[in-house]
Every structure is written in structure tokens, then in C-alpha cells.
Amino acid sequence: MYIRKILLAIVFIGLGVAAYFAYFVYSAMFTPNTAFNNEQAYILIPTGADYNEVREQLEPLLIDIDKFDALAERKKYTANVKPGRYIIKKDMNNNDIINSIRSNNVPVRVAFNNQASLEKLAGRISNQIEVDSASLYNAMVNPEFLSEKGLSEATALQIYVPNSYEVFWNTSAEGFVNKMHKEYERFWNNSRTKKAEGIGLSKDEVMTLASIVHEESKKRDEQPRIAGVYMNRLRIGMALQADPTLKFAAYKLPKYKNTIIKRVLNVHKEIESPYNTYKNAGLPPGLITMPDISAIDAVLNYEKHKYLYFAADAKRLGYHKFAKTLAQHNINARAYQRYLSAQGINR
């Protein structure tokens, strides 16, 4: 009888322990454990991070971090941390949270506008994903990558078309530049490719000319007309004489470092550079900036006319006056020069 009571007591104690353990497991796995009021929260897990770093980010977001620890250990997540950007939704339980941060790496939408150089682009991107700007820049100018893609340092900027793109936050520098090259190939669809062939320009040449058009005018309604002027000049073998290319050449010289050229002067036209389109016929070796899609399409759909010249319009700032003859152009140009002088802009 006594032994029977002991056995019954052991059984009841065992059932109690089992019940408690079952409750603990159920509570740890299936009870909502979020402590924030927003609909969702994100955590960023760096490459090479361990569980302690993940835990540090999770602790302010959870009601009971200890129960999360216990389940994470049981599900072997503590030894299998993966980098990325992960979402935690309001009222998620620990089991769902672990499943989410284990396998649901959520992409970010990276956006960039007209960056004047690869260095500036790398800086802009590094603020949006994990990789640092130096690594990005090195990947952008990597000779092996450029050679494989048929690019050079002069044309490397062209594969980065201003837009927004989905990438994983922990994407590597090499992964990012390869992603952008694929997006560039997608941008050059059959329609754009046929248009480039139809106007007698390669993709590289379209992008280079578009960068000049973009620097000449940000007015979308005027860009096709400006593109038409340059196409007319190319067709007859006339030098492009594009002032933005002179500025680009000047800014590469120590003399003009950290300066802003507001007025192109004759001294700038004497700069020895393949980007000096007053001295060199045809297009420069590559882009002078990152052009908008509007400027690229303006080249592909340039306005057909007989204009060979244009000058900034002092009465409609941002727009230009167009001319078919040099005599008329000189009149337009002098009017704008008088405006600049009146504003005290001498260089």
C-alpha cells in the first residue's frame, strides 16, 4: 500500500512536470511575444553576426527574451544565424519569429538619382545596404568585371540607370554591380536597341550623348531638341562644342578642384583633354555624368530639325534659344552673356 502511494505520487509529480514542460513549450512557441505597437518591425543582421548580436536587437522588441532564447537553442538557431533584413510582425510568437529570421530575408528598395561619379554613387548606395562605399567603388571599377562586361572606366557609370531597385540588404559589392548590369541589360529592351541601331549609335554612344544632353538641360520637353542639335553636328562632322564636357575636363585638373564653373570661358576651351569637344571631333570617351532615363530616351527619339546651335535663354531660365545659323546663334549667345555679366557671374 505504501509503495503504491509512492508510485502514484511519482506519477502525479511526473504528470505535473510534463504538464509544466508542455505549458512552457507551448508558451515559448505559440504565445504572442512582441512588445511593439506598430504593425511590424525590422532587424538588420550583419554578415558574420552571432546570436548575441541578434539577441541585442530583439530584446527591446520582445516581451520575454528568455523564452525566445530557450526556443532558439532548441531549434538550433543560435548556431545558425544568417545575415539579412528580417521582418517581425506584431503578435508573432517565438516560433514564427525564428522561422522569419531564419529564412525570410526581405529585400530593400535601393534608389539613386543622377550621381556625377562612381565615387558618389558608391557613397549613396552604401547608405542603403550593408556594404561600405570603398568596397562598392572597387567592385565598380574592377578591371576583370569591366572587361567581362565590355566596359571601361570611362563607360562604367552607364550601367547604373537612375531608378529604384530591389536588392537584399546584405548583398555583396560584387553582387550589387552584377545586379545593376542585369538591370542595365533589361533596360536596353528590343525597342531601345532597335532605336539605337536606327539612329546609327551604339549603346555606349547613346549613353555618352545622353549624359551631355542631361547636363545641358533638365527640361524633359526640351531634351529631344538638344539631342537633335548634337545629332545634326555628328552627322556633318561638326565638333559638338558642348560646354558641359569642358567643365568635366576642367574638374579633373588640380586648378579647378573644389571650384564651381558658372561661366565657360575661352581659357576652358584650351584644356587638353579627350573630353574637350571643342578641340576633338565626335563624342568623348565616356559619360560626363549619370543621365536621367528622360535624357537617354531623348537621344533615342531626338527631334528632327535643322538647328545647329543653342544658347541659354535669359528670359526662360532652364530653357534655350535655338538657331540654324552662326550669326543668329551669336546674337542669342551675346544676350545670355550680358545676363551673366549683369548677375556678376564672371567665371
Rank of each mutant, 00 (worst) to 15 (best):
I226Y: 03
N189S: 13
G123S: 02
N232W: 06
A250R: 14
M29L: 14
E272P: 03
A335T: 11
V25E: 01
I226L: 11
R74G: 00
G84F: 04
L340M: 09
A35E: 06
I345F: 15
L7A: 07
F30T: 13
Y307I: 05
A72Y: 00
K257I: 09
V17S: 08
K304C: 02
I296E: 02
L201A: 05
K76F: 11
Q343A: 09
Y165E: 10
E166M: 07
S217N: 02
K247F: 02
T34L: 06
M1S: 02
L201D: 04
A79F: 08
A154R: 11
K304L: 02
Y336G: 02
I293L: 14
K75V: 05
I236M: 07
A342P: 03
E222Y: 02
N94D: 07
E222L: 02
M29Y: 11
S273Y: 07
S191D: 11
M231L: 13
S273V: 10
F24K: 00
A295H: 07
R102L: 14
E303Y: 12
E174Q: 07
L146Q: 01
S202W: 10
V54R: 04
K194T: 08
F322W: 10
D50T: 05
M207T: 01
I88Y: 02
A111R: 15
S100G: 14
Y275D: 03
F310D: 00
R186C: 10
R338M: 13
M1R: 06
Q328I: 10
F322T: 03
T193W: 14
A28E: 00
Y23R: 00
A311V: 04
F310V: 01
E144N: 12
E185W: 14
K194R: 15
K257A: 15
R347C: 13
L61P: 02
R55K: 14
Q241R: 12
N99P: 00
N33H: 11
V177M: 04
L265K: 09
